[in-house]
């Protein structure tokens, strides 16, 4: 029996970033695990229910060592959701997936050693991430060239110029293009359904808002070469001429 997809509803895919603990092991692992056990004994459940990423950047280990380490951590109730800085050859299907582009936030402090700080123990709550106050819009005055990927998840992107075929612009907010959009534009990628895409001349390969997308083929030829805007209305893609 063949499954016939009757409902042409698209699968939604979104990019989203989360805060995770990055654990950086040191060689030899035996010694490091002893220190980890020491930490765990002072604060049971420090790693429990927390997403943990293993950062092995620059570490000279083989696959069996990595398997061993992940297994050792699992027995200590530390579940690894991803591995950062691993050579692709090091990872296989039985290991957590590779993670890239991690950005540091404020350090999460390990619980204090109770032996030395008897009495005055203050619970050190992991600090909420406090990103440096970044501007919430980005203005680009140069054309975005083929092969370039402009990613700005903090807010709106304004481009005074064109976006070439094979280039992509990804924004957390709306995208404004005062030129021709020939490549891809993805707005509202952090879950902002009210984001819009504006361009002065539409030749786009793909446009997406909040995970919904349309390819050039879906867009038809009526709007080609015209000034156009795109928005979402009740989860459906709308577009109209700006002229």
């Amino acid at each position: 029996m063949t499954n016939v997809l009757t409902q042409p509803r698209p699968i939604r895919l979104k990019g989203r970033s989360f805060l995770a603990l990055a654990l950086t092991p040191e060689l030899p692992f035996e010694d490091w695990l002893v220190r980890l056990d020491d930490l765990a004994s002072r604060s049971t459940g420090f790693f429990m229910r927390r997403p943990v990423v293993l950062d092995i950047t620059g570490m000279e280990i083989d696959r069996s060592q990595l398997h061993g380490l992940v297994e050792q951590l699992r027995t200590r109730n530390v579940r690894i959701m991803g591995i950062e800085g691993a050579r692709p050859s090091l990872l296989d299907a039985n290991l957590p997936p590779a993670m890239t582009d991690g950005r540091p936030t404020s350090d999460i402090e390990a619980p204090p050693n109770e032996d030395t700080k008897a009495g005055a123990v203050e619970a050190v709550a992991p600090q909420a991430p406090q990103p440096a106050k970044a501007p919430s819009s980005l203005v680009v005055t140069q054309p975005v060239r083929s092969g370039q990927s402009l990613i700005f998840t903090e807010g709106d992107v304004t481009i005074v110029g064109s976006v070439a075929s094979g280039a992509e612009v990804i924004a957390g907010g709306s995208i404004h293009i005062y030129g021709t959009l020939r490549g891809r534009a993805m707005a509202g990628t952090m879950g902002n359904a009210s984001a819009r895409i504006f361009c002065r001349k539409l030749e786009a390969e793909l446009v997406a808002i909040d995970g919904y997308y349309k390819t050039a083929e879906d867009l038809g030829s009526d709007l080609r070469g015209k000034p156009v805007q795109f928005w979402l209305e009740d989860d459906t893609f709308k577009f109209g001429s700006l002229a």
Binding site: Q142, R145, S146, G147, Q148, A164, S165, G166, A167
Partner: peptide, 12 residues
């Protein structure tokens, strides 16, 4: 033209 555009990006 598209390859040239890519190269201009690299030149920059």
């Amino acid at each position: 033209v598209r390859d040239s555009d890519r190269i201009i990006g690299l030149l920059d």
